[in-house]
């Protein structure tokens, strides 16, 4: 129960010692207490709440678009070896170009604004979800599929009773991976090409040489990412209640 807390608490302790002994200038590494009070300031002034609301909306929309396309294409690719042959290699090539690499190009096409944010975040989610969904479906044991054929299951029953449940663990690792990518993409796009949100707040903190603001942003992003990941794990467990424990 306490094990996961050991590392963060040690880091906090080290941080406190480092600032107390001034291993680094306070302008570079502010003390944990300074950061805490900056956090309180940002909460009471509403700055962080406003920024978070914007960032979370971007994540939700971008993730929803990316996941919808990713799941559809992933299922299609997992079901059709031919489609996989056509699309798979291109997709894996695209996956190699990080979202940041797309930014200068997409910026010229979509301009600076919400569309650009949604596209970058959606793209970041799309690739891992597609690849994992397709892999999860392909890896369903052949004899399950054979049984389904023998039972003459309809296509929809086949999809919802066999394929999706069978591929669920892999699909969910894809989704969790995608959410992580979405966060990274959002912070990057806000830091580089936007004027609102938590990522922008961090860039602004850097510009003003108030590193405490940057650290608050890091902690908030980490905490929310952690909660979201936990939420997804919980959903996955709920969806897999039917599965035997050893599966």
């Amino acid at each position: 129960m306490l094990l996961p807390l050991i590392l963060p608490l040690s880091v906090l302790l080290l941080w406190q010692i480092a600032t107390a002994r001034e291993w680094l200038a306070p302008q570079i590494l502010p003390s944990p207490l300074t950061v805490f009070w900056t956090f309180v300031d940002l909460v009471t002034s509403g700055d962080i709440v406003e920024g978070l609301a914007i960032s979370l909306r971007r994540i939700s929309v971008g993730f929803a678009i990316g996941a919808a396309f990713g799941l559809s294409l992933g299922i299609a690719m997992g079901r059709s070896a031919k489609l996989e042959q056509y699309v798979g290699p291109s997709l894996r090539a695209i996956a190699q170009v990080p979202s940041l690499g797309w930014l200068p190009f997409l910026m010229l096409i979509f301009g600076i604004g919400e569309t650009l944010n949604y596209v970058i975040i959606a793209k970041a989610c799309f690739v891992p979800i597609t690849i994992n969904t397709a892999a999860g479906i392909r890896n369903i044991p052949v004899h399950y599929v054979e049984v389904a054929h023998v039972l003459r299951l309809r296509r929809s029953a086949m999809l919802f009773r066999l394929i999706l449940p069978g591929a669920l663990p892999t699909i969910f690792s894809g989704i969790r991976l995608a959410l992580g990518h979405a966060w990274i993409a959002m912070v990057v796009v806000e830091m580089l090409a936007d004027t609102a949100g938590v990522g922008y707040m961090m860039t602004w903190g850097r510009t003003l040489f108030q590193i405490d603001i940057v650290i608050v942003g890091m902690v908030v992003i980490g905490a929310i990412g952690f909660l979201m990941d936990g939420g997804l794990r919980w959903i996955e467990r709920r969806l897999r209640r039917w599965a035997p424990v050893h599966a």
């Binding site: 200068p104 910026m107 010229l108 096409i109 979509f110 301009g111 600076i112 604004g113 580089l192 090409a193 004027t195 922008y200 602004w204």
Partner: peptide, 19 residues
């Protein structure tokens, strides 16, 4: 309306009509 961007991105904003 002030759009806070780095120099290279300002060009993109102008070129795409965002600014």
């Amino acid at each position: 309306t002030i759009l806070d961007l780095k120099t290279a991105d300002q060009l993109a904003a102008l070129a795409s009509g965002s600014a």
